[in-house]
Design a protein around this nucleic acid. Sequence first.
RNA 1: GCCGAAGUGGCGGAAUUGGUAGACGCGCUAGAUUCAGGAUCUAGUAGGCAUUACGCCUGUGUGGGUUCGAGUCCCGUCUUCGGCACCA
Length: 825
Amino acid sequence: MKQYEHHAIEEKRQAIWERDDLFRVTEIKGKKKYYLLEMFPYPSGKIHMGHVRNYSIGDVIARYKKMRGYNVLHPMGWDAFGMPAENAAMERGIHPAKWTYDNIDYMKKQLKRLGFSYDWAREIATCDVEYYKWEQWFFLKMFEKGLVYRKSAPVNYCVHCQTVLANEQVVDGNCWRCNQGVIQKELTQWFFAITKYADELYEYCDKLTGWPERVLNMQKNWIGKSYGVEVDFRLENSGILTIFTTRPDTLYGVTFMALAPEHPLAITLAEGTVYEKKVKAFVEKAKMQDRSFRAELKGNKEGIFTGRYAINPLNRHKIPIYIGNFVLMEYGTGAIMSVPAHDQRDFEFAKAYGLPIIITIMPKDRTLNPDTLEEAYEGDGYLVNSGEFNGLNNREAIGKIIDYLEAKGLGRRKINFRLRDWGISRQRYWGAPIPIIYCDDCGIVPVPYEDLPVVLPLDLEVKVVGRSPLLDCEEFIKVKCPKCGGPAKRETDTMDTFVESSWYFLKYTCPNYKEGPLDKDRVDYWMPVDQYIGGVEHAVLHLLYSRFFNRVLNELGFVDVREPFKNLLTQGMVIKDGAKMSKSKGNVVDPDYLIEKYGADTTRLCCLFAAPPEKDLDWSDKGVEGCYRFLQRIWRLATEKLHDIKHLESTYTLVDHGEDCRLLTIKLHKTIKKVTEDIERFHLNTAIASIMELVNAVYKFQEKPRTNEKELGLLKGSIEVILKLLFPFVPHITEELWEILGNDMALLRDRWIDYYEEYTIEDKVTIAVQVNGKLRDTFEIERDEPEDSVKEKACNLEKVKKHTEGKSIKKVIVIPNKLVNIVCG
RNA sequence: GCCGAAGUGGCGGAAUUGGUAGACGCGCUAGAUUCAGGAUCUAGUAGGCAUUACGCCUGUGUGGGUUCGAGUCCCGUCUUCGGCACCA
């Protein structure tokens, strides 16, 4: 008997798939479609186990859905612009383009060796000018619509990467890519107006029922919607100071105001007072501190009195105005009212600066004393010291006070978001050029559509660390102003690579379309993505940007759906020895090594069996051995009795030919049912486990010497069922064995196997018998035996009697075909 | 601090609606086969007490509760992980 030779088999099957162009997919009107998408990789060199896991999960679903009769779009491409290409260029003297395309070649080979069913005819590389020119086109459209704008603002800047980062790309004050410190820098940058969609992006979270709660929570958290009111405080002399608060119920307890150092009034207020000099110095100092530094100050807030006062609109109290380094200019109005009695942060500031504390909310169960208060009371209660609102429950008071303010013209309802606009300028070379020209006379001039693409010159050398060679490329920079024809300069910043990944899923539907950015018919045939699979690390990055971008393209008329991803599965990380795989920790498992030693099928199987997809997978070398053993077991099972069964007709329904045939038939149908249901709900590990159980049962069945053709036909049928069920997981070995058994390949690939409900029901069932909830015995009955006789049988069991002896039976609970519980005492 | 997820054998993990906890795999133990190793096959494997047989007790982080019955539902609590964090 031939051994299981994974190398030969996998090469052979892959060659056949390629020859027959098996994964090619076209739009077939009237056929139900299924768009399965896995997050495309950055071509960093080699694929890692995280990719293998992600794409193995995807391939199971893709192949399964195809077998269920769907027209399945399953594409793959490359997120090909980005920093590492420049770093590699610097380190090794290779051009970023060459480095990138070499990596793509290598990684594509790896993905093919793993046998994933991608339609490679739809492959996209985002650094391809045919791709990014349409991105530039979208940029221009967005510019026209006012969704792109340029402003000078304090931005996150990674000194190491020498570029600006979006808020989403700063993780714990560090750069998401190099993990080094991020500073604040005032720069003029391009922004996408994602905040225009903040409310919709937030509210639609509740409609994304196919997304994990976790991701939706993270997005909601990030967008940060809060309901409140803007209140106008008249300044003592003249002018108005507007603040935002979510707690108007504490308005009577305001004892000071605080402005952000960047607030326009910060310096002007103090002018002419004795505090002027000190205030100026304070503001200067605070402006120097970057965001992360200020965040660390927490319990150590600093502020300074401006010498001016505002008037509380409700009780006319004179309120001193401070400048506080803890007040954020970007949120609300950059100014706050402070209520030390009911806000811990205000409380600490008041204590430090000797400011009064006024209680306005009294809890029901105790009395607060402002002189002995040790921390702010942030709970609920009834209003005191609050004029006509005294006695009201504070939650009710919120609405009443807002109504009052609005009626008197002192304030208005307001919703604020924490989300900021998306800064997309990157001072880098390896990215899509921003299609903008600066003219001394005409100002900012968008590149005319007919002049697109703005091609990234490839004949440049990355010489100096962190300096984009575009800055030194005269041919690129020097340009005639499209408006006046005079001398002008090109924008040298490129776009954030997250812009590319915000619409690649649309381009997959029509990658070769040339007449415009997207072919709407094909986009609408495939969209939305039915199932998206990827890592949770993109929860507030790519997944938020894409939702924004898809909305913009929806409004531009390129796609009918508003939300791009209907269902989302976030797979867990692959870890080893308790840590994420990384070179520095030396716990990396190389997919190439696994494919070489055990084969693609084993590698895939192992990723799918060791843990459910959404959980972290703890890699175990022993686990691979186990999976390899399992496949060898399948191989032996199918080939050992080959001569006895090959010529026979197979069956998987043999219920009237002896007990063990009947039992095996039932096992077969139960397993088909279980595997089908498990794949549908992504319990891939338990799907595999139940196939393993079936394999064990078939082994037992074939151990007995058999000559009867019906029985051998059932053996053959059982093996075929196993191959069918396993095909989406391990396509190579199953196809090979299918062929060895002499079958038509289409029968394996083209249709999933159906089970018969009547064969999933066993006619004998085991009843568990409990006494007072404790299991005492089990016994077998015919399915659906009358309750009374089951009850009687249960009560008369020896082991049961032992526990009921001398006690009175109070109640007997019967759960049909399952359990009897005898309650006695 | 706020939001969220998760705690089950030596390990990875099972247990759709409350109904026999520990499926499947790894590891381990014993036996068969083998010159030996490996591979394969068979049996066993939650812990404890018994081992004369049948057993008996305890067990899903922890303390309560609901229920005939709780890993599953409710309340409290501890731990771990993830996200946000001076957001007014």
